[in-house]
């Protein structure tokens, strides 16, 4: 029995992405086909410059492919208007960044509450959800701490709580352990895997770290913007 549900969540169909730098035409992705089902814990693996982050950005609707299409729950997100994409990100996507990208002027619980501004909940409900999310990542004692008062591992836990608080369908994590030491990175990955199993949230994680990839349930390899089949 597969450890993920059969519902198709994300799909890249013959996706390519090119960047123009003056006369130079740089291929970031070429002919990528990838399907991700609901509940998967999948890695985009490859060396630096292989196109992991680009593919992750395309899945997140924060960048557009130059060829092919990205589908989310049966919808070609390339055909969505900007505000519809923003709604999609607000409701169904969570992001975790390598550099945490927390709002420095907000404390931990406020950082987690921040995305909930977009879903019209009352203040009390927002606070309750934020506290629950912080508890799930083990930061219940750090509600009032600002990011600058927290360690790297705590910051990434906070970023995970922020990504999880709106109960997204998928969390896209770009090199989430790259700025952490090995032990803390392993803890973060264990936390994400735990959330994947308990909350049934799909995780798509980009990484080139073998210790990270070893913990993933499925790995999609990239090299020079193409799928690396090992051939």
């Amino acid at each position: 029995m597969p450890d993920y549900q059969d519902a198709l969540l994300l799909e890249a169909r013959n996706v390519s992405k090119r960047y123009k730098f003056g006369e130079l035409d740089l291929v970031a992705l070429s002919a990528i086909d990838l399907t991700i089902k609901q509940g998967e814990f999948v890695a985009l693996a490859g060396p630096s410059g292989s196109g992991k982050t680009t593919l992750l950005n395309l899945f997140g609707g924060i960048d557009q492919p130059t060829g092919g299409s990205i589908w989310f729950e049966g919808t070609d997100i390339g055909k969505l208007h900007e505000h519809e994409l923003a709604e999609l990100r607000a409701a169904k996507l969570g992001f975790i960044f390598q550099t945490f990208n927390l709002i420095p002027v907000l404390n931990a619980v406020e950082n987690v509450e921040y995305p909930l501004l977009l879903n019209g909940l009352n203040a009390e409900k927002k606070r309750q959800l934020a506290e629950e999310a912080l508890a799930k990542v083990g930061l219940e004692k750090f509600y009032k701490h600002r990011p600058s008062q927290m360690s790297g591992g705590q910051r990434q836990r906070l970023a995970i709580a922020r990504a999880m608080v709106k109960k997204p369908k998928v969390v896209l994590a770009d090199e989430p352990t790259a700025n952490l030491d090995r032990k803390t990175g392993a803890e973060i990955l264990d936390l994400m895997r735990d959330l994947n199993e308990r909350e049934r949230v799909t995780f798509v994680v980009s990484s080139h770290d073998p210790s990270v990839l070893a913990k993933m349930k499925r790995v999609f390899h990239l090299r020079d913007g193409r799928e690396d089949t090992g051939v």
Partner: peptide
């Protein structure tokens, strides 16, 4: 600017 990118990624509109 990085913060602007983050909040846009979180779903905030322009």
């Amino acid at each position: 600017t990085g913060e602007i990118g983050t909040i846009r990624a979180l779903g905030f509109t322009r």
